[in-house]
Structure formats: C-alpha cells, structure tokens
Amino acid sequence: MVLRRYALGIEYDGSGFSGWQRLSKPGEPDLRGEPTIQASLEEALSFVAGRPTEVVCAGRTDAGVHAAAQVVHFDGPAQRDPRGWMLGTTSRLPPAVCVRWCLPVAADFHARFSARARRYRYRILNRTVRPALERQYLSWERKPLDADAMHRAAQALLGEHDFSAFRTVHCQAPHARRDLQHISVRRDGDVVAIEVQANAFLHHMVRNIVGSLLPVGRGEQHEGWVGELLAGRDRTVAGPTAPSAGLVFLGPRYPAQWQLPAEVTL
C-alpha cells in the first residue's frame, strides 16, 4: 500500500475531554474511561483508512482547553481524496470535534517540529454576574479589570527568557527558555482577551501568565510586578493558574513553504 502524508486542521471543544493526549496505547481501549481528542481522532481516521492510524499534533492541550486550528499529520493511503478524509473522519468523530481541512504535504512535514510559533487566546468575562451563554469558552472575573494596565505589564514578557515563574511543577520540558513573540490584552465590552504567541509554550504557561496579570488588572499589584516575577523565576510567588475554560489554542504557525492555510502560516 502506498502511503502519503496529510495535514489536518482540527477544531474542538475540549470541555468533555481529559485533554489532547491519548491515555492508552494505540488500538487499546482507554481503561480510565476518560475520552481524549487524540484517541477519538485516531479511532475515526483508522476507520476511514481501513488500518490503524496514528497522528502527531502541533501542541498538546490540557483538559478543558479548546482549539480553533490544531494541526496534526498522519500517513494514510494515497488514493483517498483529501475531501474524503475530511468528511469521512468528521462523520466518525463526536460532535465536539471536526476536521476543518485536509491537505497532502511533503513527507518531511512534521506537525510539531515544522512549526515556528504557536498562538493562544484567553477570554475573561469581566462583570458582576457569571456567564450563562458561552460559559465553556469564558473565564469569569467579577472585580473590574484594567485591561490597559494588564497590557502594559505583559510587555515585560516579550523576548527570549527563562519562564520558570510561569511553568507548572509537573512540566516535563528540559528547560524553561521560550521566545515570547507577541502578547496583548484588549477589552471588548465585558470581555477581556489576552492573545499570546511564542515559539513554544511550557505546561500551563499561558494560564499562569493570565493568573499573574489578573492581580495587576484588579489593582492588587503594580505593573512592574510581572517583570519582577519573570526575573525571579519562582513559581511559588506568582499568581494562581487561571481556569482552563477561557483558553483556546488558535493554532501553530508554519513557514510558507508548506503551503498550508493562511491561518496557520507565518
């Protein structure tokens, strides 16, 4: 059988999943009974391919985190049309997951290692009353937030630094140096949105950054505090980890040579 490499753009609501990463070996049932995005996708792809099929993703997401354009690659039978992969796989996925696009790619394309950046957005409903609509996609803060102060404080994080102050103790990365390329905090009505782009992220890094910007927004810490946390490299004195519900993985970004959709191209 002739195989060809394909890239998929995956959209998912992470609310009902225990995260991206499969909790069992390929082809084996998940004995913990906790569904994952990877296991659901591989099961659907394997049905369409008629053979066991594994995927590699651009960036693993935690339980409750959503994705607008997660990118994966897999090797499947070359004779199948990309549209067939997209529609056939989606028909076998749970309602909270879909394949938005499928493209054939060069054999040396790698969803993780070919990416040059990754983007996230965190949204906070900032009003007295908790959300009823879209509550799975929003965090909530009842105290007024100064988004402009949060934005100014966040600029201290730009550039390549040791982000130990914003990594979880469970992070398995060999080092904490990351290149944070963009961060912004903007208010649109009652919603405060934080957007972050970096070459890569540590475990819980975005949620820990948000958790440390919130005291600045509430006026409990001065704007220079976030920069002090970065320099101090001490997770224990930084803000708490923000809830997962407000976080969406907007997707990785790749060099134009891979000819992927504009939303995931630099």
Rank of each mutant, 00 (worst) to 15 (best):
L93G: 14
S164W: 04
A154I: 03
D179R: 14
M150P: 01
P252M: 06
L133N: 01
R177A: 05
Q197N: 03
C102M: 13
R207T: 05
G27Y: 13
L138G: 05
V206D: 04
R112A: 01
P240F: 07
S40F: 04
F249R: 01
A111R: 05
S114D: 11
A96T: 01
R187C: 08
A193V: 09
A176M: 07
R92A: 11
M150D: 02
D62W: 12
S18P: 02
V192W: 04
A165F: 10
F74E: 02
R167E: 11
Y137W: 14
W258Q: 01
R152F: 12
P240S: 05
A231C: 06
D108I: 09
A69E: 08
L138W: 06
A156H: 14
T61H: 07
R116N: 09
Y122R: 01
N126T: 01
F249C: 00
L157M: 12
I209N: 09
V72C: 12
A231K: 13
A238I: 03
V264H: 08
K25I: 07
G227Y: 08
G16W: 07
A231W: 03
G224W: 08
A256L: 11
E263D: 15
L3R: 10
A68K: 04
H222S: 15
N208G: 11
I183S: 06
P26F: 14
I10G: 01
D190K: 06
R253I: 00
V99W: 05
F74P: 01
G84E: 09
Y12F: 12
T36M: 08
E54Y: 07
P26K: 13
Y122I: 00
T128S: 07
D234H: 09
E34P: 08
D162R: 10
Q172Y: 01
E34W: 15
T61N: 06
F74N: 00
R142W: 10
E134L: 10
R187Y: 04
Q259M: 13
D30Y: 13
R130Q: 11
R135L: 08
G219H: 06
H66I: 00
E195T: 10
L247Y: 02
G232A: 14
R118A: 04
R186D: 07
L3K: 11
F109S: 08
Q136W: 07
A153E: 05
W101Y: 13
E134Q: 09
T53D: 09
V226S: 03
G14M: 09
P52Q: 04
G16L: 07
A111C: 08
H182L: 12
V192H: 08
M1F: 08
W258A: 05
V48R: 07
Q79R: 14
E28D: 15
A39Q: 11
G84W: 06
T241I: 10
R83H: 12
V237Y: 04
V237I: 11
G227M: 03
A173H: 11
I194Y: 03
R127P: 03
R187D: 04
E228S: 10
A67I: 01
R121H: 09
G76M: 06
S24W: 12
F109T: 08
A245M: 13
R207L: 05
S212Y: 06
L103W: 14
F249H: 03
F249T: 00
T168W: 11
E54K: 12
L8D: 10
D190P: 08
V185Q: 10
Q70T: 06
V129T: 01
E28R: 15
G189F: 06
